[in-house]
């Protein structure tokens, strides 16, 4: 991988972030009023008591130079967000910072997301590949057809169904939160199980839906790869079926899937943070839900920034890994 390719990809990453900050800046300013005063007014009208509302308006007006001309405001905002990572103050937690509110929530979201995506990607692709593999048992096909409809149902809706089935009708898993209130914590088996059992249903809602999604597209790619000449050649050479399956068929089918992962990660992230709302899981999705309830616009903007940055970061990583996996890709 050349330095040129690397720097070009990083440039795209930076441009995406600047674009997101720009959208974040302009949408609330499309209305003619001072946005902060308008927001505080809106919150008061919703029946939320805002302590020190004058202080908030003043602090914001100063920090973002609300009285300056728009371009000056814009560059100040850009500088604040990008150089200092400063998204301003949360209105409902004033003088708490938006970034503090979000950073506290990020670990929950990221851990759930990574576990769910790894499980779904591995299981989904394996099932999809086995589905068109001649020697695989009939059962695999049945499982894939069974999972297919799940891939079209929004994660949020699946989460509601799972919550009802496995936490209320059959109380196997807890109904929400990250741990049982008053649990001792620490590293005892009981504490670990407590944390794990709280995460099972949120993870499962994303996994169930994604498995069908990956299996479906893997099935299509694998069907094409299986018709290639090099596969017949591998068979003619008398290679073991397991080796043909993994090193020849699956390996080549996986490359477009990894590209697809980069493209779909936006949908996956924004869909799965909604699941947190169902399970009261204190991640970024829950922060968003509460911020929307209290019209805490700056926190909403912060969550949007989180989504954009994490998507851009995932795509950057995918683009940097892909040339390593696929020797036919030569990036300049």
């Amino acid at each position: 991988m050349s330095i040129k390719y690397l720097s070009k990809r990083i440039l795209v990453f930076i441009v995406t972030i600047i674009l997101a900050v720009t959208i974040n800046f302009f949408i609330p300013r499309l209305t003619p009023q001072n946005p902060v005063a308008a927001l505080v007014g809106k919150m008061v009208s919703k029946g939320i008591t805002v302590v020190d509302s004058d202080a908030i308006v003043q602090k914001y007006t100063e920090q973002f130079g609300m009285n300056d001309p728009l371009p000056v405001q814009y560059f100040k905002y850009l500088k604040n967000v990008i150089l200092h990572g400063d998204l301003g103050y949360s209105i409902s937690y004033f003088p708490g910072k938006v970034t503090d509110v979000i950073i506290r929530a990020i670990p929950y979201t990221v851990i759930i997301m990574i576990i769910a995506n790894v499980i779904a990607f591995v299981v989904g692709n394996l099932l999809g590949a086995l589905c068109v593999w001649k020697k695989s048992p009939k059962l695999v096909k049945g499982v894939v057809y069974f999972m297919m409809p799940f891939s079209t149902i929004p994660y949020y809706i699946l989460a509601l169904i799972l919550l009802y089935l496995f936490a209320i009708l059959l109380p196997i898993f807890p109904i929400g939160g990250v741990s049982t209130a008053g649990s001792a914590g620490g590293f005892s088996f009981k504490a670990i199980w407590d944390t794990v059992s709280h995460a099972v249903l949120p993870i499962l809602s994303v996994v169930l839906s994604l498995i069908g999604f990956w299996a479906l597209s893997m099935r299509g790619i694998m069907a094409t790869v299986l018709g290639e000449d090099y596969l017949m050649y591998a068979q003619a050479r008398g290679l073991k079926p397991g080796r043909i399956f993994f090193s020849y068929a699956v390996r080549n089918s996986l490359l477009p899937q990894i590209t697809a992962f980069g493209i779909d990660i936006g949908k996956i992230i924004s869909g799965s943070i909604l699941v947190e709302i169902v399970f009261n899981y204190p991640g970024v999705g829950m922060v968003l839900y509460n911020a929307l309830r209290t019209a805490d616009y700056f926190v909403i903007q912060g969550v949007v920034m989180f989504i954009v940055v994490s998507v851009a970061l995932t795509m950057l990583i995918v683009d940097l890994i892909l040339p390593k996996l696929d020797p036919t890709i030569k990036y300049e």
């Binding site: 974040n24 949408i27 493209i263 949908k267 924004s270 968003l288 969550v303 989504i307």
Partner: peptide, 12 residues
């Protein structure tokens, strides 16, 4: 396609 649409929709 790559910018998560929900993010922009939420803002609007």
């Amino acid at each position: 396609i790559t910018i998560p649409p929900l993010a922009i929709l939420i803002l609007i």
